[in-house]
Design a protein around this nucleic acid. Sequence first.
DNA 1: CAGTGGTCTAGACCACTGG
DNA 2: CAGTGGTCTAGACCACTGC
Lengths: 258, 258
Amino acid sequence: MPASASTLQDPPTGVGVAPAFSPLYQQIKALLLQSLQDAEWKPGEVIPSEFDLAARFKVSQGTVRKAIDELAADHLLVRRQGRGTFVATHAERGVQYRFLRLRPDAGEAADEGPTQRLMHDLKKLRAPAELARQLGLRTGDSVLQVRRLLALAGTPTILEDIWLSAAAFKGLSVERLAAYSGPTYALFEQDFGVRMVRATERIRAVQADAEQAELLQVRPAEPLLSVERLTFTYNDAPMELRRGLYRTDTHHYFNELN
Amino acid sequence: MPASASTLQDPPTGVGVAPAFSPLYQQIKALLLQSLQDAEWKPGEVIPSEFDLAARFKVSQGTVRKAIDELAADHLLVRRQGRGTFVATHAERGVQYRFLRLRPDAGEAADEGPTQRLMHDLKKLRAPAELARQLGLRTGDSVLQVRRLLALAGTPTILEDIWLSAAAFKGLSVERLAAYSGPTYALFEQDFGVRMVRATERIRAVQADAEQAELLQVRPAEPLLSVERLTFTYNDAPMELRRGLYRTDTHHYFNELN
DNA sequence: CAGTGGTCTAGACCACTGG
DNA sequence: CAGTGGTCTAGACCACTGC
């Protein structure tokens, strides 16, 4: 028997329902996740060593290890041999623009991210029903809309609209966005304590309308890739909706299927 | 020290280069992979139990376990508690069409795969340089080209060209393709012993040309999603190039970012 | 050289499956 | 009830990092 399973959640003994047996390491994982959510350890910081955590939770090091393994597999934590285990961050070089799958056609190496921001615009508006639903807000709640145009290798390639809860991102400004040189998600971590963890994307082929064509410097009706991204923090709480229009004449969306 | 590391590969002792320390479980993983490649266990079959494998390789069960864990994470093996560990297969219900990311706009549930095949065509041709390069063949090698049109929920939605080495897929016929009701990748396993393991996709927005438009029943110049897929067997050997044109007016390409 | 993650073992026991 | 994967422990030792 685990040394002290009783100090953690015991499996429910109710009748009728599935036993819902939960292994110790899953419970540890949940506790670690809670600490991440509570910002006990912030992005980029070290968390306690496996032995310390084992002592804290009164389980063996191997059990903590397995919990951390899963969090590392989900990119919530990053292990570094000899140094410790760290809270993952979008600010770190090498994993920046982790969610951007647009690659130049030539040379498999990923771009270093957008090389130039051509335009930033910010509006505040009331969330229509569908947007509110996706962001987990109520219809009419205050929402920020950021529109921006990004250039890759000198040519405008990405036209993006970003929608955020105005409450959660209170104080976000065009100036801050324009001045910040890293990925937006790193800015969200630093300024608002919002760490983005995963995202879903819905991709379609669409025709550029007149305005989009002009901004992206393509002919009207030129085909563009529409990438609708819903981004989640800890807890699977949706925090951002983003709609990108990508030119795919010199770049492509790269995906790896496993 | 591991019980019998000496019977497996010892770390190279050369000077100058990185030590290239390789843990035991990695070596076990490589051995298991070799057995999969050699078709010692075929798709859908059970592999020996962890204890049997531990005895065979003269390591502890935990070490075999870790090797299998990684192969299972890569979807090469599938663990089933109480039953055993099986070689993954595309024929299995629930993982069919694992590489098809097109989803209906309404209802997050994935389609059960293409509901109807409207057309199949097969040609034999000499591989141009670029195709040969991608498939790991020599320019001019004999290649099969399959063209097919698939309908989802009654409307033609996917127009696909598939290129395969004629040598590796000798005997493939339109009749076989048309008659087979499951995914192509399951057919490849059964008829040719080729198990597809992973794939990369390059996605672009393109305009339908006249022929494509007619087949997919859209207006010419309608935007379509172009999905170019390179599919690999064990060993990262490319075995198939596929170019799909997807209508995205009622469906979208779904992607999960972690 | 101390501290951290990484590997490996051996053994106990639990959960699930099928005969 | 036997067999398989799944969990947990305890302890030893290795590889890597930084002081």
